[in-house]
Simulated scan of single mutants.
Amino acid sequence: MSVRLHEIAHCRAGDKGDVATLSVIPYVDTDYALLVRELTPQRVRWRLARYVGGEVLRFELPLLPALQFVCTGILDGGVTTSLALDTHGKSLSSRLLALELPD
């Protein structure tokens, strides 16, 4: 079985320059272990490959619980100067939440 990420978690996003941060927070704390296991930087990079030109770093925040992903090389220099469409943090978080994870 699989589950879409948006069914078990929500995402907060921010962007500055050519960096976006995506924080993924499970609705239920016990799903944090599933996120740690399945939501790897490589999987996030694969899901957002069309939009992320740099690396994806993951930070684990078990006391919250949450995962934060820092994605570089995404905005062609920043939101106000980019000619790219739909690469703001909020759009990236929506794309990430559509990701299918093994259950």
Rank of each mutant, 00 (worst) to 15 (best):
Q42F: 03
L48N: 05
Y51I: 02
R12L: 11
H10T: 09
V19D: 07
R45A: 08
E100W: 07
Q42W: 00
R50W: 03
Q68S: 14
D103G: 04
Y27H: 06
G54N: 04
A98G: 02
R45K: 14
D31K: 06
I25W: 03
L22M: 12
R37Q: 11
T81Q: 14
H6E: 08
Q42P: 00
G14Q: 12
K90A: 15
E38D: 03
E38G: 00
H10N: 06
S91A: 12
V56H: 07
R58N: 08
R95D: 07
E38M: 00
S2Q: 06
L85C: 10
L35D: 01
W46T: 10
L101E: 03
R47A: 12
I25Y: 03
L99R: 07
E7D: 10
D15K: 09
V36P: 00
L83C: 14
R45V: 02
K16M: 07
G14M: 07
Y32T: 04
G53K: 08
R12P: 02
R43M: 04
R95C: 07
P65V: 10
V36M: 00
G53S: 05
D76S: 15
M1F: 09
V79W: 13
T80C: 14
Y51E: 10
L35C: 00
E100F: 01
L85I: 15
E38I: 00
R12Y: 05
E55F: 06
R50E: 08
R43G: 01
C71I: 12
T81H: 14
T72K: 15
L63T: 14
L48F: 02
W46V: 04
Q68P: 08
P62R: 12
L83Y: 14
L97Y: 03
R47G: 01
L83I: 13
Q42I: 02
S91N: 13
A49P: 03
R4A: 09
V36N: 01
G53M: 03
R58I: 02
L48Q: 04
I25A: 03
W46N: 07
R50T: 05
V19Q: 06
S82H: 13
V19N: 03
P26L: 00
T81M: 09
Q68N: 15
T30M: 00
Y27D: 02
S91Q: 15
R43F: 01
R43E: 01
W46K: 11
G54F: 02
P102Y: 04
W46R: 10
L61D: 09
P65W: 08
S82D: 12
S93H: 08
F59W: 11
E60V: 07
G54Q: 04
F69V: 15
V52H: 05
A84I: 13
I74P: 10
L67H: 15
L97R: 03
L64R: 10
V52M: 11
L101R: 04
R4D: 02
G54K: 05
G77L: 15
S94G: 13
D86E: 15
S23G: 06
I8N: 03
G77R: 11
S93G: 06
C11D: 10
L64N: 06
V52L: 06
D103A: 10
D29H: 05
Q68T: 14
E38S: 04
H88K: 12
A9T: 11
K16A: 09
L5P: 07
R50A: 11
K90E: 08
V52N: 08
Y32A: 01
D86W: 08
F69I: 13
A66H: 13
L67W: 12
G77Y: 14
L34G: 01
Y32L: 02
I8L: 04
S82Y: 09
C71Q: 15
L101D: 02
